[in-house]
Amino acid sequence: MGISKIWIYGESTDGVVATSTLELLAKARTIAETVEVVVHGDASAVATELGEHGASTVLSIGELGDGLPGPRVSSALAGAVDAGNGPDVLLCATSYDGRDVAGRLSAKVDAPVITNVVDLTVDGDRLLGVEPVFGGSLNVSTGFTGDGTAIFLVRPKSFAAEPTGGAAAVVGSLEVGDLGNTGGSTVKDRFAEESTGPKLDEAAIVVSGGRGLGGAEHYVLIETLAGLLKGAAGASRAVVDAGWVPYSYQVGQTGKVVKPTVYLACGISGATQHLVGMKGSANIIAINKDEEAPIFGVADLGIVGDLHKVVPKLIEALKARA
């Protein structure tokens, strides 16, 4: 049998395909002959871009209206799987909606989701998902042992998106089945939060703060430094859990995966949870009081010292240069 058909849950905003979807396409086209993307909304709006990145077909489940993607996309996918037209493999990005789609489909077709995947490898007739554990010191390869579609949730930035110059994808459709009560969530309004500077997962420089800041009132140090470096401000899970900054700031296994040119970790000890989200950065600078902190294990430049002394001086020096 082997892996002949891969489906990807495709995400896009206003006709622009999400980078995480293009990343999945780049990998999928090296594995399977047929790579198709399942989207909601107008498939023809994204067919050209998806085709350029290796998709042969784009299948739309139709417009969502004010519905959420999770129940609808998973219903359409399950319908195809149950009818015997499903893929060997379904890839979803680890995004807000990607998790909803993969999780709901998993329950519908009674198959597990292989999660937190950062690489995909072919093992005979099946695909394995590689998951980093213990701060990325070990890589665990996991395969689906059942029949039918293997479902993977793949972390963003695991692969590099690259166009192949392929022709526009052929447009097709998939039908959403009866949603029962699962369709009872509707989007009433959307709010974009004001943000200055680059996005956290796209910035060339990321400055992150951890528990070593000592309190929410000191997070301004991180924001000021990030601003001066024209970078984005991030945080460890500990800081988000403590309520100092919103969830959207979180870098790590749970939050955003970042791979900037420079990652500056201030007062972050380097728990597994955090390292997995930033160790792919090209250059890592860490400031921490504890010489034994695991963050120094991945740092290119490690400063053993008090961030409350080092960062203000750094800020002053950068201001003097400006």
Binding site: G143, T145, V304, D306, K309
Partner: peptide
Amino acid sequence: RQEIVDITEAPASEAGEIVHD
């Protein structure tokens, strides 16, 4: 219905420079 097929050690990153402030 998922099985761990392989566990490998990730390549260790090269030690960086450590500076005491």
